[in-house]
């Protein structure tokens, strides 16, 4: 019963949904304020979601009738599962086990793959170009993102998110070592979340909305929800690994979680408002030329430090 409550209500499905909508609102509001605009009212994401749910969902005649509607659910399910392994109210997540960092990272790859498949099965030209770009992009940001998140794990000598945050909570000064990895993680997760400057798979002004061009109604609503939830999960993971401050009190711990994720969200929103969308080949070049070497240096430094520092 408690497990069911945990999975469905808190911190599982319903909490994630509400928090994701709140996050979308905050993201849009911060983005608007950075641009000197009013921005949407607080209920706008919910209103968008309900409106999409109520709209007619069209499946293109050429699309695969079974795979097409199933893909949004896959994306949402993968993200929701990943959320169960992220610490929220204390240093421990709901179901911590050794190696859950790897599992979460792979679960977070599933949405990108569903975006690719969604574009591919839509059979529209825009969607095909979008899905090609989604996959090309996956190969360029995934490597630096993984390395940036694994470097702190090497120093902490733990492969679980909870273990890593507990280690850094015990040794707060070691967080400073991971600052390059933090930068790499922030930059490459913009690619994972498909936000400017790495939003080529969607690129509204170029390929309409890329992979999602044929999606409508409730299918698109679920996809949107999955994207918002992915934003929450990525922010929560980065907060857990790079900002591991928490207390024993669950209420204070939860408030701390909210504050930390909003700080990460603010950084992401600033990042997306100050740059132009770059071309896909420029992104591949950028990721492999700058981000990967930086992440490799971080890993080497962490391995060396591990031998030197008294742990």
């Amino acid at each position: 019963m408690v497990a069911l409550f945990n999975i469905l209500v808190f911190p599982g499905f319903i909490f994630l949904g509400v928090y994701a909508l709140l996050f979308e609102f905050l993201d849009r509001r911060i983005y608007a304020r950075l641009q000197n605009r009013m921005g949407p009212p607080w209920f706008q994401p919910l209103a968008d979601f309900l409106k999409l749910i109520g709209k007619e969902a069209v499946i293109p005649a050429e699309a695969d009738k079974k795979v097409f509607p199933a893909l949004p659910i896959f994306a949402l399910a993968a993200v929701t599962t990943a959320f169960l392994y992220v610490p929220i109210w204390s240093g421990n997540s709901l179901l911590p086990f050794s190696g859950d960092l790897i599992v979460v990272l792979y679960l977070l790859t599933i949405p990108t793959l569903t975006f690719f498949l969604a574009g591919w099965y839509s059979t529209s030209v825009y969607a095909t170009v979008g899905s090609m770009r989604a996959l090309t992009q996956l190969f360029s940001y995934e490597v630096p993102l993984f390395m940036a998140l694994l470097a702190p794990a090497l120093l902490a000598d733990s492969w679980s998110i909870s273990g890593i945050s507990q280690f850094y909570a015990a040794h707060p000064l070691y967080i400073l070592i991971n600052i390059p990895a933090f930068v790499v993680a922030i930059v490459s997760c913009q690619g994972k979340l498909e936000r400017v400057p790495f939003d080529m798979p969607e690129a509204e002004t170029e390929i309409v909305s890329g992979t999602f061009v044929e999606y409508s109604g409730r299918f698109y609503a679920v996809f949107r929800m999955a994207i918002d939830a992915e934003l929450v999960v990525v922010a929560a993971i980065i907060a857990a690994i790079f900002l591991p401050f928490f207390t024993a009190n669950p209420v204070v711990g939860f408030i701390l979680f909210v504050v930390k994720t909003i700080i990460i969200l603010f950084i992401l929103a600033v990042f997306r408002s100050v740059m132009a969308r770059i071309r896909i080949e420029q992104m591949v070049k950028f990721c492999w030329k700058y981000l990967v070497p930086l992440a490799i240096i971080q890993i080497i430094v962490n391995i060396l430090l591990k031998g030197v520092l008294p742990l």
Partner: peptide, 22 residues
């Protein structure tokens, strides 16, 4: 360099928005 508009953007976070909620 990239992100040259950051300072300008951050200045606007707490400024009065130029739009109204018509």
């Amino acid at each position: 360099g990239p992100g040259k508009i950051t300072g300008e953007a951050l200045r606007h976070v707490f400024a009065k928005p130029a739009t109204i909620s018509y």
